[in-house]
Measured scan of single mutants.
Amino acid sequence: NQASVVANQLIPINVALTLVMMRSEVVTPVGIPAEDIPRLVSMQVNRAVPLGTTLMPDMVKGYA
């Protein structure tokens, strides 16, 4: 099963993503693939993302 990107903490809106904010985990439904974590660094989410939430492509500005 493919690992997805999961919030490692509350990720506020309009804050640049850092490695420490994200972890990889096998979850259902599948979200952004874990291998895209380096690409996500410095991008921003378009809504607050609670701890443990799977990041979906539509949550990250400029990802999709």
Rank of each mutant, 00 (worst) to 15 (best):
P57C: 05
V26P: 07
V5I: 10
L55R: 00
R23L: 05
N14C: 05
L17M: 10
D58K: 08
L17G: 00
V26H: 11
V41M: 07
V26A: 09
N8C: 06
M22I: 09
A34C: 05
T53K: 12
P12M: 07
N8Q: 10
L17Y: 01
R39L: 11
D58I: 10
V27I: 06
M56N: 05
Y63K: 03
I32G: 00
R23F: 04
N1G: 14
V26Q: 08
V49M: 04
M22F: 09
T28F: 14
A16R: 11
S24Y: 07
Q9P: 00
V15R: 11
S42V: 03
Q2W: 10
V30I: 12
S42H: 12
G52W: 04
A34L: 03
V6L: 07
P38K: 11
V26R: 07
V60M: 05
R39N: 15
V15W: 12
I13R: 10
V6T: 06
A48F: 09
R23Y: 07
R47M: 15
V45N: 00
S4I: 02
A64I: 13
L51G: 11
L51R: 13
R47E: 09
I11V: 09
P50M: 08
L40E: 00
L17N: 00
N46T: 11
Q44P: 11
V45R: 00
L51A: 15
V49D: 02
D36V: 09
V20I: 12
P38S: 13
D36H: 15
M56S: 06
A16Y: 12
A3E: 13
P29K: 05
V45L: 10
L19M: 14
V60E: 01
A64F: 08
A3Q: 11
G31N: 00
M59E: 02
N8R: 11
G62Y: 08
G62S: 08
M43E: 05
N8G: 09
L55N: 00
P29F: 04
M56A: 07
V49C: 05
L55Y: 02
L55G: 02
N14G: 15
Q44K: 13
Q9L: 11
V30F: 13
M56P: 02
V45C: 05
P29W: 03
P57G: 07
A64Q: 13
G31K: 01
P50K: 10
E35R: 11
L51P: 11
L17T: 00
Y63H: 06
V27G: 03
M56T: 13
I37F: 03
R23D: 06
A3K: 13
G52E: 04
E35M: 12
V45G: 00
L19K: 11
T53V: 13
Q9T: 13
A48Y: 11
L51S: 13
S24K: 10
P38Y: 13
I32E: 01
Y63R: 03
I32C: 04
G52S: 06
I32H: 01
P38A: 13
T54V: 08
P33Y: 08
S24V: 08
I13T: 13
P33G: 06
P50T: 08
A16W: 08
L40R: 00
S4E: 00
A16I: 12
M59Q: 05
I11P: 00
D58Y: 11
M43C: 05
L40D: 03
E35D: 11
V30M: 14
A16T: 08
A16P: 11
I32S: 00
V5Q: 02
V49Y: 02
S4A: 02
S24I: 10
N1Q: 12
P50A: 15
S24P: 11
I32L: 05
E35Q: 15
V60C: 03
D36T: 10
P38E: 11
G62P: 05
S4C: 05
L40C: 04
V30H: 14
M43F: 10
G62K: 09
P38C: 07
L40M: 07
P38F: 10
T28H: 12
P33K: 08
E25I: 08
P12A: 07
I32F: 02
V60G: 01
V27K: 07
M43S: 07
A34Y: 07
Q9R: 14
L10K: 14
L19D: 07
M43T: 04
N14F: 06
V27T: 11
A16E: 09
S42W: 07
V20A: 15
A7T: 08
P38H: 14
I11W: 02
L40F: 01
V5E: 00
T53W: 10
D36K: 12
N46A: 15
L19Y: 14
P57H: 11
P29D: 05
R47T: 13
T54R: 03
I13L: 14
V41S: 03
A16D: 13
S24N: 08
A16M: 13
V41E: 06
N14H: 14
V26C: 05
A7M: 04
T53D: 12
I37D: 00
L40W: 03
G62V: 04
P12Y: 04
Q44Y: 11
L51D: 10
T28L: 15
T18D: 07
G31I: 01
V26L: 08
P33Q: 06
T28G: 07
S42K: 12
E25D: 13
V45K: 00
P38N: 11
T18C: 05
V27D: 01
N8D: 09
T28Q: 12
M59R: 03
N14K: 08
M21C: 04
R23H: 05
R47Y: 09
L55W: 02
P50R: 09
N14Q: 08
I32A: 01
